[in-house]
Design a binder for these strands. Structure first.
Lengths: 193, 193
DNA sequence: GCCATTATTCTACAATGTAGAATTTATTCT
DNA sequence: AGAATAAATTCTACATTGTAGAATAATGGC
């Protein structure tokens, strides 16, 4: 007779019900705490629930991770829209871009595994979030569409490569988001010179 | 009595001995065939050997993968060193860089899992290979050291991000190395203008 | 009150990395 | 030559993982 055994079947008290939100939130928390994606069993333990209960809400672990990703991605920096005049155009967008990149990297650093999920996802939603905010920032530069496309591709993949390097490096301090300074400066020169 | 059971203990005939090279080669082959890193058991089966035999040569799977990586990385494009004159400087290095990038991406595409191993490795050796060849190519541009460093960082992480995207995308044709054209052009503009 | 639906736990399986012991052959020492 | 040691291999076993499928219990609609 297992001491820890819980009663089987649907729980009585209504408020006790497991909710998708709770699962997602706990998953996020464990990702931060453990620095990696938790196993379904670990997640279930944290929720004080049987592992299989989670599968009632998410058809597979991949689907759960996609939900986590979608929920997190909107937290990246939201650029401020300005009415710019003359000289400001040349500098403001760089600061905004810097901030967007840092917040994106910070997110990918805080939640290891997010990156791979993001890139594996069927839905383009999460990837679109960054693109959207990027577009807002470079809007005042009035680049032609193909140039914007190339610029976005170069930046996104650069950031993903950098994030991957951070995630793979075991010693946390060897690599941090501040180090994009040089490359990002070079990048800015490329798209506006 | 298992029909497939092999005799235990050290094999008699000398030539039969498993060699690290064989393990590495078979691992490479399976990576290409399966499009992912094989399990130790699969690798052992291909070698017609017990799984644990592999651990006699490599202390862990990670160490084996590092050996595979080190062995593969030297295959990337070796830039030709030229004596350039005047106008050629402005164009030749771009073609060389393009070729280097394509061969690097091709390698990372062909051997999924290589990227993560590369980035997780203690040894800087493999990472140095690309850096070395990059340096040869941009040498004639006579950039100052910090600029070279930034340029290398931007390019390497961009390529890693791109490679990761290729590896994560299940439909093979959605993403291929030819697509670096635009971003790479932009990049070249950045480092020499 | 009956029955379908919903939320949950339990049991079980196949795959994985790998520790540790057993076994057989090769090599080295005396 | 014989004994001891080392090397190369297979076997057995374990913990961890994702998840399929069945059993169980409460809820909600009729």
């Amino acid at each position: 007779m297992n001491v820890n055994a819980k009663k089987r079947g649907r729980p009585s008290r209504k408020g006790t019900a497991l909710k998708p939100e709770m699962i997602i939130d706990t998953a996020k928390q464990l990702m931060v705490e453990q620095g990696k994606i938790p196993s379904i069993r670990q997640l279930a333990t944290a929720l004080q629930v049987d592992a299989m209960a989670i599968y009632h809400y998410f058809k597979s672990k991949a689907v759960l991770l996609e939900a986590v990703t979608t929920s997190l991605i909107s937290d990246i920096y939201q650029p401020v829209v300005r009415v710019e005049s003359g000289a400001e155009v040349a500098t403001e967008w760089q600061a905004e871009l810097h901030q967007l990149c840092l917040s994106y990297l910070h997110l990918l650093e805080q939640y290891p595994g997010l990156l791979e999920t993001l890139l594996s996802m069927e839905s383009e939603g999460p990837a679109e979030v960054f693109a959207q905010r990027f577009t807002i920032i470079v809007e005042p530069l009035e680049l032609d569409p193909p140039a914007v496309e190339s610029a976005l591709a170069l930046l996104v993949d650069y950031l993903h490569g950098f994030a991957l390097a951070m995630n793979c490096n075991q010693d946390r301090d060897a690599l941090n988001p501040q180090m994009i300074e040089g490359p990002l400066g070079l990048y800015c020169k490329a798209i506006f010179c």
